[in-house]
Amino acid sequence: MLDDFMVRATLAGLGVALAAAPLGCFVVWRRMAYFGDATAHAAILGVALSLLLSTSIFAGVLVVSLLMATLVSLLSGRGYAMDTLLGVMAHSALAFGLVAVSFLSGVRIDLMAYLFGDILAVGKDDLAIIGAGALLVVSLAGWRWSALLTATLDGDLARASGIDPKREQLVLTLSLAVVVAVALKVVGALLIAALLIIPAAAARPFCRTPEAMAWLAAGFGAASTSGGLQAAFWLDTPTGPTIVCLAAILFALSSLAGQLRRRRSRAEPSAEATPRA
């Protein structure tokens, strides 16, 4: 079954979507959309370095993303606003990465594959790495869920309950680095952040609890990756961007539904507004 490239691609997409869903929710709740971008752009530097040093691409990307995540965590709250800091680091990392790639004479590398992903070329080894990464991230998110959620609500509230918000943030940023490294093959460096944010944002209007939002985001993510894969196959379009397009369409439909529902509940005072015993 795994010999079929479409099966491998579908499984890879599902793995990334599952891992991205809970983290994407935190990225949305904590307003750190830029963070995903920064880590993802740093991935290109990782690609360049691992080609220069002829190590595995996955390892290079993972190391650079982890470094980037740690650096941002350490530097945050020290004079510069977070978005400035992330803007500087994201684009510098991308620029240095692109320059470094140009030094690689002799090796013709397909830069497009790293910028936009190459999900159809996912091999069995890639699949194993994606599976392991997704499992790690999902179990980490599940294990730290309550603590992460409390720290997201309010740092002091977390402290009072004996939760260190700094540590939880580190857990989150390191998990993000793993997702970036794992997702590079699937949607590429430029679109990883989209896979984090868009399914979570699309899930928001239908959810009443954080857990529901994470599950629905996983569902939307899975629908986008597997649907996008099929669409790209039939329409002969680039796969990574097609996946993100599908996620964007889901987002548009969901916000429309959310608007409609809100208007309806405003028209007729809903039962929710009156306290129930």
């Binding site: 904590r30 307003r31 997201t152």
Partner: peptide, 15 residues
């Protein structure tokens, strides 16, 4: 944050 859905019950159950 308005992006974080949270019922009163869920809030009381944290952490």
């Amino acid at each position: 944050d308005a992006t974080l859905p949270m019922t009163v019950t869920r809030f009381l159950n944290l952490p």
